Simulated scan of single mutants.
Amino acid sequence: MPETLSERALLLINATSLTELSKAGTTDYPRWVNIKRGRARVGADEIEILGALYPQHRWWLMTGEVMLEMGQNRPDYSQK
Rank of each mutant, 00 (worst) to 15 (best):
H57P: 09
N73H: 12
L68G: 10
L12W: 07
S78E: 14
G64Q: 12
M67S: 11
L18Q: 12
A15M: 14
Q72Y: 05
Y29P: 02
G43L: 00
I35T: 02
E65H: 12
V33M: 05
L61R: 08
L12V: 08
I49V: 15
T19C: 03
K36P: 07
N34D: 11
E65G: 09
T4H: 07
E46K: 00
E65A: 13
L61P: 00
G38R: 05
M1G: 15
A24Q: 02
R31P: 00
T26D: 06
P2N: 04
R41Y: 10
L21F: 01
Y29Q: 03
W59F: 15
L61H: 04
A15D: 13
D28Q: 09
Q79I: 15
Y77D: 10
A44P: 04
W60E: 02
P30S: 06
T4Y: 09
R8L: 07
K36I: 05
I47N: 07
P30H: 05
D76L: 14
Y29C: 03
T26E: 08
R31C: 02
T63E: 07
V42P: 02
D45E: 06
L50M: 04
N73R: 14
G51I: 09
A15P: 08
R58S: 11
A52N: 13
E3H: 14
P55G: 06
K80F: 12
L10K: 13
A24I: 11
K36S: 11
D28N: 12
R8Q: 07
V33R: 08
L11P: 00
L12E: 03
G25R: 00
P75S: 10
A15N: 15
D28R: 13
T26N: 11
W59I: 14
G51T: 10
Q56P: 09
L5P: 00
G64P: 09
A40W: 02
G25I: 02
A52Q: 13
G64K: 10
L21A: 04
I47T: 06
E46S: 14
L53P: 01
L50P: 03
E69F: 09
V66G: 02
W32H: 04
P2A: 03
Y54H: 15
H57L: 14
L61M: 13
L61I: 11
T26C: 05
M70Q: 14
N34L: 08
A40D: 02
G71W: 02
L11W: 12
S6W: 12
W32R: 04
Y77N: 08
P55V: 05
M70D: 12
R41S: 14
A52Y: 04
N34K: 15
